[in-house]
Simulated scan of single mutants.
Amino acid sequence: MVVEIFGGNIMVKYSELKYTTFEEYFNDFINTLLPTNKTYEYFVDWNRVNKVVHKYKREIKLLESLYGLNKDEAKRKLEEILLEYPSVLPLLPALIAERTKKGQVEIYDPDKFNFLTLDFNPHLLTTQELQEILKFCERTGILNVLTTVENLENYLFGVEVGLDTNARKGRSGKIFQKMVERFLGRNVPEYITLVTEDKNFSLYKAIGRSKTPKKHDFVFYRDGTPIAVMEVNFYNTTGSKPLEIVRSYITLNRVAKDRNITFIWVTDGPAWNEMKDTLKIGMKEIDWVINYNQLQRLINIFNSVNWELTEL
């Protein structure tokens, strides 16, 4: 069954999903979007936070020796520690919530009218490097932290918890992927093998030039043969990224069809309420576009034909 919309043919298989019209399918998609994908794991990655703090326990104790010293005393003490224990170097930018790039921090020094690259990887410091590091600690307030904060471990713990909130956007997609994986694990029959982020199979090889093509979120195998791939994503906020994703998935859907493989796009999130036109572009070209709540309809269809998906 095909309907006309925006002057083109809707390809999404809404009738197989047990909807009478595209409008019924689309309205159900929008009305059943998840308001959030925040699970308990979303808020803080405690394993990462504890790992960072535990990693620097020895160095924290060394730097705590500066507590209560005046500025000059603290600079001399820090200089001694840096020369004797270079392993404290990575801890210094962490105290001001600075994520280094390969252990380095780039900064503009207005006194020298020049950009500096400070290396905080553990290494023996030259005289010039030592003075630059000491200046960095003084000007950025690190030295003040070391002389006024008695318990650096608790301080660093708080800093890392705060920094971890920046990683929530990246965790959001992984959390939704885990939600879908749990559902599939309960509903996919045993004769179907589900592989997450399969290293051995990717349709992206056909559309990209990279030697290491992107992995699919899920690949479904039957008797050792890939029969379906699934991509999942969740959007809390609007932006240009969804349109890029839609275009790439339209291409993947065509590549998959050429190889008798079923392409499935599971997407969700409140942002789709504001990006309906972008969503319809994908639905116009991709066979299977569903949200999390529609997953059961899809699995029911596949189970009804014993996952002989070429029949659909």
Rank of each mutant, 00 (worst) to 15 (best):
K135G: 09
G141I: 09
I133F: 03
R139S: 09
F157M: 12
N154A: 00
F136A: 09
C137L: 08
T127R: 15
I142L: 10
Y155G: 00
T140S: 12
K135A: 11
L124K: 11
L124Y: 06
V145S: 02
P122F: 15
L143Q: 08
E138P: 02
H123D: 09
T147I: 11
T127L: 11
V145Q: 05
T126G: 05
F157V: 06
N151S: 00
L146Q: 07
T147R: 14
V145W: 01
T148M: 12
N144T: 14
E129L: 06
E138Q: 14
K135V: 07
L134H: 05
L130Q: 03
T148I: 09
P122H: 15
E153M: 12
E153Q: 15
C137A: 13
N151W: 06
E132R: 15
T127G: 02
L130D: 01
R139I: 13
L130I: 00
K135I: 06
C137Y: 07
N144K: 15
L146A: 04
R139W: 14
R139K: 15
V145K: 04
L146F: 04
E138V: 10
G141F: 14
P122M: 15
R139A: 12
I142K: 03
H123C: 10
T148D: 08
H123N: 08
I133E: 05
V149T: 01
I133N: 02
L146C: 03
I133V: 09
Q128T: 10
L146S: 03
I142F: 08
L156M: 13
E132V: 12
I133Q: 03
L134T: 00
T126H: 04
H123T: 05
T140F: 10
F136D: 07
K135H: 13
L124I: 00
L152P: 10
G141H: 10
T140E: 12
T127Y: 11
F157A: 09
T140Y: 09
Q131K: 12
Q131G: 02
E138I: 04
G141S: 13
F136Q: 02
L152D: 01
L134F: 05
C137F: 07
V149G: 00
F136G: 06
N154P: 12
T148E: 11
L130G: 00
T126Q: 04
C137Q: 07
F136L: 11
E138T: 09
I133P: 00
E129A: 03
G141R: 05
P122Y: 15
T147H: 11
K135D: 08
E153A: 11
V149C: 01
T148Y: 11
Q131Y: 06
L143I: 07
L156R: 08
E138F: 08
L156S: 04
L130W: 02
Q128K: 13
I142N: 04
G141Y: 10
Q128N: 12
L125D: 03
L130A: 01
E150C: 01
N151G: 00
L156P: 05
F157R: 14
L124V: 00
N154I: 01
E153R: 15
L134Q: 03
C137D: 05
F157D: 06
T147F: 09
L152A: 07
L152K: 07
V149Y: 06
C137M: 11
E153S: 14
L130P: 01
C137E: 02
E132D: 13
L156N: 08
C137N: 08
R139C: 10
L134K: 04
R139T: 14
T147K: 14
G141W: 09
T126R: 10
Q128A: 10
E153N: 13
N154S: 06
Q131S: 06
P122A: 15
H123G: 06
P122R: 15
